[in-house]
């Protein structure tokens, strides 16, 4: 009886080189889809979509191929004059997720002046609850992802002092499990995506000391499957976006060298679409900007020369973080 481990097999003919030009074309095209229906369907996360695409472009030094003014103008129009929060798209409701994406884009262009930054700070501050957690918007859903968005936004605006950091840390700590992994709320299962958010949060607040580094790094390394790809939880399939979440987490913990880099590289490269360009979650699936930026970012951490260094905490080009002198802790 042979029960194979849940994994995939890389196709023989999968790409082994980085198809850089194709990916640039892919991102460029993606912003201009003329299928109205498809386009309207992704309005609800447009701001993050732009952050993924633009970050991918900047990582390969091609940010200039898209018109900066249109982007900045769009972001301006997405800031809610009442709350200061930023929405995914014009007329949609503001949310922390898109507020962070917008601020990240503005930092890349060095155009923080384009929005009312103090209104953004007020918005973020207004979402902290007495237990230190953050809600994503005024309707009250709590998630460690939002804790990350809050401190990342404030750190990029150099206003971390605007919230109760100590309480925010104790909330995140209350979401830690016995395996030292984190879930989205207290009692939730450890999940590599949430591990990234919580480590990123702790990196920004300078409190990585609250995790047992090697216990968590061990759990993260166990996410690597025989195909070389990484999954986000036990017995799940490998996925390119988890390459980023797990790898950036290991980098923050100073344990990047614990994983098999050649195997992971092979897996990520195999997820490129040779025809359309872009990366997909697994070989053969449809490519999208989300997996494309995380594919790039992971390859950057693995030391690909043709991709600029990426910052593991913010998932932004390192030179942007350097220029803005954003403090954060890495082990």
């Amino acid at each position: 009886m042979a029960i194979p481990i849940k994994d995939i097999k890389l196709p023989e003919d999968s790409p082994k080189e980085l198809l850089l030009d194709k990916h640039v074309e892919f991102i460029k095209r993606y912003g201009k889809s003329d299928d109205d229906y498809e386009f309207g369907m992704s309005d609800y996360l447009r701001m993050s979509g732009m952050y993924w695409g633009l970050t991918a472009l900047e990582l390969v030094d091609k940010l200039h191929i898209l018109p900066e003014n249109d982007v900045i103008d769009f972001i301006k129009r997405c800031q809610d004059p009442e709350t200061g929060g930023i929405s995914a798209c014009i007329d949609h409701d503001p949310h922390l997720l898109y507020t962070l994406s917008a601020v990240q884009i503005l930092c890349m262009y060095d155009r923080l002046d384009a929005v009312d930054a103090s209104a953004v700070v007020n918005y973020v501050t207004s979402l902290q609850l007495p237990d230190g957690s953050f809600t994503g918007d005024k309707w009250g859903e709590v998630d460690t992802r939002f804790s990350f968005c809050a401190v990342a936004t404030l750190a990029l605006l150099n206003r971390l002092d605007a919230i109760d950091v100590e309480k925010a840390v104790s909330f995140v700590e209350s979401c830690k499990n016995f395996d030292e992994g984190f879930g989205s709320r207290p009692f939730s299962e450890s999940h590599a995506g949430m591990v990234y958010c919580c480590l990123g949060f702790l990196s920004i607040t300078g409190r990585l000391d609250i995790v047992d580094r090697d216990t968590l790094a061990w759990w993260l390394c166990e996410r690597q499957l025989p195909s070389g790809g990484l999954n986000g939880r036990p017995e799940k399939l490998p996925d390119v976006c988890y390459s980023w979440w797990v790898l950036s987490s290991l980098t923050m913990l100073g344990r990047l060298h614990w994983i098999s880099a050649p195997a992971l590289k092979r897996f990520i490269l195999a997820c490129q679409d040779v025809e359309t360009g872009g990366f997909s979650d697994r070989p053969g699936d449809v490519a999208d900007p989300y997996h494309t930026v995380f594919g790039f970012a992971a390859l950057s951490l693995l030391g690909f020369d043709s991709i600029k260094p990426v910052n593991p905490t913010f998932c932004m080009p390192q030179h942007v973080i350097d220029k803005l002198k954003i403090k954060h802790q890495l082990l």
Partner: peptide
Amino acid sequence: NVNVSGLMLNSNDNIIN
């Protein structure tokens, strides 16, 4: 005392293996 220093890593392998 979590201590994995007994595991000799070569650069291409996952520590688990």
